[in-house]
Write a protein that binds this DNA or RNA. Sequence first.
DNA 1: GTTCGTGCAAACGGTTTGCAACAAT
DNA 2: ATTGTTGCAAACCGTTTGCACGAAC
Lengths: 131, 131
Amino acid sequence: MTDVRAALRAHDINPSAQRVAIAGYVLGVTSHPSADEVWTEVKARLPSVSRATVYNTLNLFVERGLLRQLVIRGGSVVFDPNLEPHHHFVDDETGEIHDLPWDAVAVQAADDLEGYDVREMQVVLRGTRRA
Amino acid sequence: MTDVRAALRAHDINPSAQRVAIAGYVLGVTSHPSADEVWTEVKARLPSVSRATVYNTLNLFVERGLLRQLVIRGGSVVFDPNLEPHHHFVDDETGEIHDLPWDAVAVQAADDLEGYDVREMQVVLRGTRRA
DNA sequence: GTTCGTGCAAACGGTTTGCAACAAT
DNA sequence: ATTGTTGCAAACCGTTTGCACGAAC
């Protein structure tokens, strides 16, 4: 995974074996995993990796802009490698989080919001998947 | 606070002293407090109240539809007595959550979302307050 | 006297932190 | 040698739970 190493270096992150393994998993995922889920997955490839390293590494990735952190579900934070503007759908039954394309929801940016400097806008839809 | 007792009864909740105290505070608040913040405030009026009672009572209020629970910030869930449709603004600097009127943001409900039954839509804006 | 509500303390789950060992330069 | 990275265990914080006491009909 040379491109993973390159991505890490591009974000000023030393590509250690653990970081490459974690990035190799989490940068390609679409399932919005929690830190513990990432740990479980990465352990399968690199059994010696510790939970602390996974947590710290994910936080590092977020700080360095490789990853986005979403606060959508109670209990645990989830991670999303998709850095492009998009929305999220949370399945009430399964808890699964799905990406929605940005233009699936038309958000009329209310520029007339007196007193607020809006940096980002997050739209979360909740419901169930239809057959 | 007779109306608080009435509100509790209207939602099939026995108005015990603790519940009245908790409701008396949280139903009138606009600050989106966490459970622990509610506990601190209510203890000032009713020092004997326990943390467990506050947590359990807030969950009961949510179940019974007196209160809404918001997952917006990491770390802790917050409560919002405003049941009408509205949006939220999170101040990056202070962490404060402000209500935004529903029509401050025009969300074009994407009815064309194939495969999704949308039950609710949550819009969270993040940024800073302007002087 | 049975039911419901409460307080306490312990348990819990996700996450962070202190620290000593370990690479790598 | 110095600097950065890791693993382990313990600490932490928000929250839930088990249980025995107490209040109310």
